[in-house]
Amino acid sequence: MTMITHHLSDQLLMAYSAGTLPEAFNLVVATHISLCDECRARMASFDAVGGALLEDAHAEMATDSLANVMARIKAADPVVKPNATARDTLLPTPLVDAIGGGLDKVQWRAVGGGVRQAILKTSDKATARLLHIPGGAAVPDHGHQGLELTLVLQGAFRDDDGHFARGDIEIASEEVEHTPIAEPGMDCICLAATDAPLKFRAILPRLAQPFLRI
């Protein structure tokens, strides 16, 4: 396994732990953590902050509360342990669940330049999509109105911020205008999420944007 060099920020991990991110970002964070032991350990630390805060909170429970809970426990069906399911070698479980299967279940659409994308169903606060970029091809030059997360699943890309391979995540804020180019060789597949529409610099992609949702 290659070393992951581009990780989640504290801000994203904290918001994931608190449970306040849009669904599309949650999906990217969960998928990255599935591939990255370092960020998994950091997530555990942020969960621990939540646990420590919980220790200092207090509100009286109803007097019959415990009795209710015990009655519900006794009445509940026995716990059934889910069977361990086979894991996809390319796509971590959160992503398989979002797609409803493996890569063969993805409904790709061409967006020009050989690049294909598939928008995943999430809440409308942010958009998650899979991108398929042929080796050596560029993703159209774009800046952002909001935050964009791009996680590499296969292959690699390069832009002004460096080289990104499987497991690496690029966090691009509003100020960043970048032109990711897939490294030659294997096609690059990424999971990307944005909380605002991308703004392309060229006229044509910009006109295409409302139709293609890129």
């Binding site: 732990s17 449970g19 599935s34 646990g51 805060l53 479980t93």
Partner: peptide, 22 residues
Amino acid sequence: IFTIARNRRIDMLRRDKRPDPE
């Protein structure tokens, strides 16, 4: 217990879904 409560809160307040890592 915090993580269980957080997940229940997300359901209760109909907040954005939050998949767990693998």
